[in-house]
């Protein structure tokens, strides 16, 4: 009986994943512009910018980075951001704001299950794009590939961060019970996280006192340290794991509570 139930439930997850795939790819040009576009622009800007910073002298060393290493930092920064922080939980907030959650209250499939399944589906797309991007970059001979075990550790760690990021984005999403425009929260979170996690420029270039403070926050563990793994340095791995796990659990609990409170408000007020 129990086994049966879980099997049908997995079926529900699977079909949800499939449907989200279809949704993501429904408008072709959008798909390209939304997903491939940022990749192109990112490399375009970063490559050109650092090329002019190094000004033809690619052996110049800036805080331990020569040109090649600097470019590789940005390649991995892109891959990590893509896989770990790509998901925006847009639909989630929209569902709540437009009152579509009523249907989840009736479906024998929970709101969080639906959105976690969409997230999984999205992650698959992001991974494919990441692999594709890496393929193209290595075709141009720009990529320094780490040893295979470092690569695997890096991927696993990044996926773990993506779970953390998802729980955080989920929180901004369910804020839609109270907030008209949750995109502001998300963009704010992205801006801050990008800046403080070393996704824009390596933290090595930041003033030392800032980095010292940052090491006490989850931010560097989101981008900077995973990049380091891909670049062949295992620093602060277990500390990072502890910090990320801690926050993931905290956010999961908060999400649960916020959802409960929100749904009470929703059913009471009819919104």
């Amino acid at each position: 009986m129990f086994k049966d139930l879980t099997l049908t439930n997995i079926g529900k997850w699977w079909i949800t994943i499939q449907i989200s795939w279809v949704k993501h790819t429904a408008y072709r040009l959008n798909f390209f512009l939304q997903i491939i576009g940022p990749a192109l622009v990112f490399f375009f800007v970063k490559y050109n910018l650092w090329a002019s910073i190094y000004a033809g002298d690619s052996e110049q060393i800036i805080r331990g980075f020569n040109f090649e290493k600097m470019i590789n930092y940005h390649i991995w920064a892109f891959v990590v951001a893509l896989v770990a922080q790509g998901h925006g939980s847009w639909n989630l907030a929209e569902d709540i704001r437009l009152g579509r959650i009523s249907s989840y209250l009736i479906y024998p499939f929970n709101f969080w299950e639906f959105h976690t399944a969409s997230w999984l589906s999205f992650q698959v797309i992001q991974m494919i794009i990441a692999a594709f991007t890496l393929g193209i970059i290595s075709y141009f001979g720009l990529l320094i590939f780490p040893s295979f075990d470092y690569f695997l550790i890096g991927v696993a760690y990044t996926l773990f961060i993506s779970l953390f990021w998802f729980t955080l984005q989920y929180l901004t999403g369910v804020m839609a019970f109270w907030l008209e425009e949750t995109w502001i929260l998300r963009v704010m979170l992205n801006t801050v996280a990008y800046f403080l996690s070393g996704a824009i420029i390596p933290l090595d270039l930041y003033p030392k006192w800032i980095v010292d403070i940052l090491n006490y926050t989850p931010f560097p563990y989101l981008t900077y340290y995973p990049i380091k793994i891909f670049m062949g340095e295992l620093t602060n791995l277990s500390l990072g794991l502890y910090i990320i796990s801690f926050w993931t659990i905290v956010f999961a609990i908060i999400n649960h509570l916020v959802w409960k409170k929100g749904i009470k408000l929703y059913t009471a007020a009819g919104m």
Binding site: Q18, W21, V22, T25, A26, R28, F31
Partner: peptide, 10 residues
């Protein structure tokens, strides 16, 4: 319908 459908119509 389905993944194959969206893939081909892509």
């Amino acid at each position: 319908p389905g993944i194959m459908g969206s893939f081909t119509s892509f």
